[in-house]
């Protein structure tokens, strides 16, 4: 992938939430090209809100978000759609779309007023289908797919959008361990081989520790951010959950139920 497509995202003193109520504050992190970053934290701490705010789907409250050292709010919606794509937990509104149709929608920022696909667009769609092992399923309707297949389709759509930055909200929920690892490995190869910047929220902390380059822990106070081994050394994972329920084992990088 060309160097001009590299991208970084960073926040400074970011506070997210809704007009009436802040959800989380003091969020500082930065992700560079070729890095896979996970956002972890307990339920309701604001992971999805943060992801939507980063994706410009929801206004921030205070602080700043920059993409390539340029403030997020200065991008036009058309330009941003070429910089950043999202995979959300919400299902597509129409389950009557075929796999190929859905992935083709990812090309919208590049197509003309009526959405005609050029041969270049078709190449991107084919590449996405191949990369996510969806060639066999291309003419299937979305309502005929399993959860894991639909998740792959949604990520393939984001890849067809060809943005240097991809944000994913809980891409591994509802999947079994094999498919979880399959999705995360795909994300890892996209970052390491193609230089994309990928940020995703997850509850799979042990998998994130093994696969991610950086992790942001949302704890509602300090929100520590860094490489997984740094965070382990500084005992940040230990404080994530109440000790009487689960304990973190720094040697294996996994949580165990307290006996």
């Amino acid at each position: 992938m060309p160097d001009s497509k590299t991208s970084s995202i960073s926040t400074n003193g970011l506070t997210i939430g809704y007009k009436s109520k802040a959800v989380a504050g003091n969020i500082n992190f930065s992700c560079d090209s070729g890095e896979l970053c996970a956002i972890i934290g307990v339920n309701g701490i604001g992971k999805s809100t943060l992801l939507r705010t980063l994706g410009n789907l929801q206004p921030k409250l205070y602080g700043s978000i920059s993409i390539n050292n340029q403030d997020l709010s200065t991008y036009s919606s058309g330009d941003l759609a070429k910089k950043l794509s999202v995979v959300l937990t919400e299902q597509p509104s129409s389950k009557n779309l075929t796999v190929e149709e859905l992935i083709a929608l990812g090309r919208q920022p590049y197509t003309n007023w009526i959405g005609t696909l050029t041969s270049k667009d078709k190449i991107y769609i084919q590449e996405s289908l191949t990369a996510f092992l969806l060639k066999e399923l291309r003419h299937r309707k979305c309502h005929e797919l399993s959860d894991g297949q639909l998740q792959r389709v949604l990520i393939a759509r984001a890849m067809a959008q060809d943005t240097p930055l991809i944000l994913l909200d809980e891409p591994t929920t509802h999947l079994d361990l094999y498919h979880k690892v399959q999705i995360l490995k795909l994300l890892q190869s996209l970052t390491h081989n193609e230089g994309k910047t990928i940020i995703f929220t997850t509850h799979e902390i042990d998998l994130a520790i093994q696969l991610c380059d950086k992790i942001l822990i949302l704890d509602g106070e300090q929100n520590p951010f860094g490489e997984p081994c740094q965070l382990i050394e500084n005992e940040h994972f230990e404080r994530l959950f109440p000790e009487e329920m689960v304990v973190f084992d720094p040697k294996t990088g996994a949580f165990k139920v307290s006996k």
């Binding site: 919606s77 759609a81 950043l84 794509s85 999202v86 509104s93 919208q108």
Partner: peptide, 12 residues
């Protein structure tokens, strides 16, 4: 067809 959030992320 993808939903409003997706539509917005596509520059709509």
């Amino acid at each position: 067809l993808l939903g409003e959030n997706y539509a917005q992320s596509l520059g709509v």
